[in-house]
Simulated assay, not measured.
Amino acid sequence: MNLTDIFKDSLKYPISDMTKFSIFGIVMLLSALGSLSFGNAAIDGILVIISFVALIISLGYGIAITRSAIEKSDEIPDLNLETTIVDGLKMVVLSIVYYIIPTIIVIILAFATGLFDYVVEILGYLNQYGPEFANMIPDDLILSMMSSAAITMLVAFILMVIFSFLYYMGVCRLAKYNSLSAGADIPEAARDLKKVGIGRVIGWAVLLVILIFIFNLIGGFIGLIPYVGVLISGFLISTYISFMIYRSVGLLYADI
């Protein structure tokens, strides 16, 4: 399938079964409860636990959606709690495996470029003279910090993009082989990325970002509705975006 067909399918897919869409929508709403605070430690703690469990379920269901796409099935999968929670926990491990490497590299680079040292030195000036006397900080120190920060952020961005592409190949491998070891095999994920086509994956990512931006924009307007706007936006927009991401990457991978 070309990218146009992939996204046409992915945009229609979420609303092909509104019952299953609604069930997943409730899970997505529950996963957002952790962001609420009622000023009561017990209630807030319960909400965090509910949110965490729902997040695990949503990640696991993403694997089910991806697997369905790889198998070229048009049916939205049922939400099997046991399987979904297990797959969700695998997704957590998978995320750590793929993103720990670029994170470590960026931290090492920040030390190597002196970024942390510059920040500490600037904070020392602010503590000594106060924020209102920020002009006391030497210009060369500020420029050095900005240069180090720019280099670190640029490398961080490039690494995160590369490893995000690899991560989604890992997600597809986990869905296809139902194996965490297969999903976490970064060299094999890199080979799959090459098979899919780096250009196709970049095109997929660009189109996906544009669509997510548009849907989030719509969600922002819905969120302006008093009292229920945020809930409606979370239920509709977040759920729709999740379906679209996992469906589209599954279809992209299905061609290899």
Rank of each mutant, 00 (worst) to 15 (best):
E132L: 01
L115S: 13
R173M: 14
S95T: 15
N80G: 12
A175G: 13
Y168N: 02
D78M: 08
T152M: 11
A150I: 15
S181M: 13
V171P: 01
V155G: 00
N80F: 06
I108Q: 13
A184L: 03
Q128I: 08
G88E: 02
M169T: 14
A149T: 05
L154N: 05
V155T: 06
A149E: 06
F111Y: 15
V171D: 09
R200E: 14
V106D: 05
K195M: 10
G130I: 00
I186F: 08
L207E: 05
M136C: 04
D78S: 15
F157Q: 10
L154W: 05
A134K: 05
K195R: 09
C172R: 06
R173Y: 12
Y129A: 00
F165S: 02
L143W: 15
S179A: 04
L193P: 01
I142G: 00
V106Y: 03
A110K: 08
Y167E: 12
D192V: 14
L154R: 10
Y168W: 15
D185R: 00
F133S: 03
F157S: 14
G203H: 10
A182V: 06
L115K: 12
A134C: 03
M91A: 02
A150M: 15
V201L: 05
E132C: 06
V155H: 08
A112T: 12
I151A: 02
K90W: 02
C172D: 11
D192P: 06
K195A: 05
L143S: 14
L81R: 04
I100L: 14
T103D: 07
L166N: 04
S147G: 09
T113L: 13
F163D: 06
K194W: 00
K176G: 01
K90P: 00
Y118A: 10
Y125Q: 11
D117W: 04
G88L: 02
I100T: 09
I122H: 10
L123W: 07
W204K: 07
E71C: 02
I122T: 07
I107K: 05
M91R: 01
V201D: 01
A190L: 07
D140F: 03
V119E: 14
F116C: 05
I105F: 13
D78V: 13
I100R: 02
A156C: 01
D139H: 00
A189N: 04
E71Y: 03
Y129T: 00
L81S: 05
M169Y: 13
G88T: 02
I85A: 09
P102F: 11
